[in-house]
């Protein structure tokens, strides 16, 4: 059985950046790519050395997909990363609906900004912290880094102990937001 190429209708996608910027991309595979209603000429190449680059307006851009999970993507363009979720027109409508009805969480989790070792804990569970106050000291690559509370509130839980080794994005502290 021969499979039919779906050529007739335009295929449309919406790439939504982490800052909520939208790119409407039509027919990404075709010769007739449109981004935000403008026709663009973009080509993707794999070179013989194993690099992938985009050729656009006669300039080369080194590109790499570093992470994908379902429709969430993190890609690098010339070493700078961008995060997008890719939506079809239908899923985009759904996303908009969900975003609007999302419950505003009162809980703020502080994650480790880098892998390292907890060398000091400056607060106790139940304590009040102010935004900008240091809560932990994380040692990484021989430097001591202060971990700062991003919001004012009450320390609900401390997930680490002194001398613990943590990975990037491990949850360290849970804070319940309070109006300062």
């Amino acid at each position: 059985m021969k499979l039919k190429k779906s050529k007739e209708a335009d295929t449309e996608y919406i790439a939504v950046s982490s800052q909520n910027k939208k790119y409407k991309i039509i027919n990404p595979f075709s010769e007739n790519i449109k981004i935000n209603s403008k026709k663009v000429d973009i080509k993707i190449f794999d070179d013989e050395n194993g690099f992938t680059y985009i050729l656009y307006k006669r300039k080369k851009y080194l590109v790499e997909i570093v992470e994908k999970s379902q429709n969430k993507y993190t890609v690098l363009i010339n070493g700078v990363s961008y995060t997008f979720s890719i939506e079809t027109p239908i899923s985009y409508k759904r996303k908009k609906y969900l975003d609007k009805n999302k419950l505003k969480s009162k809980i703020e989790l502080i994650g480790a900004p880098m892998p390292g070792k907890i060398v000091d804990i400056l607060i106790d569970s139940g304590a009040k912290v102010k935004e900008g106050e240091a809560v932990l000291i994380l040692e990484a690559m021989k430097m001591q880094n202060e971990i700062i509370a991003p919001v004012s509130g009450i320390v609900k839980k401390i997930f680490v102990r002194r001398e613990d080794i943590v990975n990037k994005e491990d949850v360290l502290v849970e804070i319940e937001k309070q109006k300062s």
């Binding site: 790439a15 985009i54 890609v75 363009i77």
Partner: peptide, 12 residues
């Protein structure tokens, strides 16, 4: 850059 990033992710 950002537009090209959006394209690359969408393409994939």
């Amino acid at each position: 850059d950002e537009m090209l990033a959006a394209y690359l992710a969408t393409f994939d």
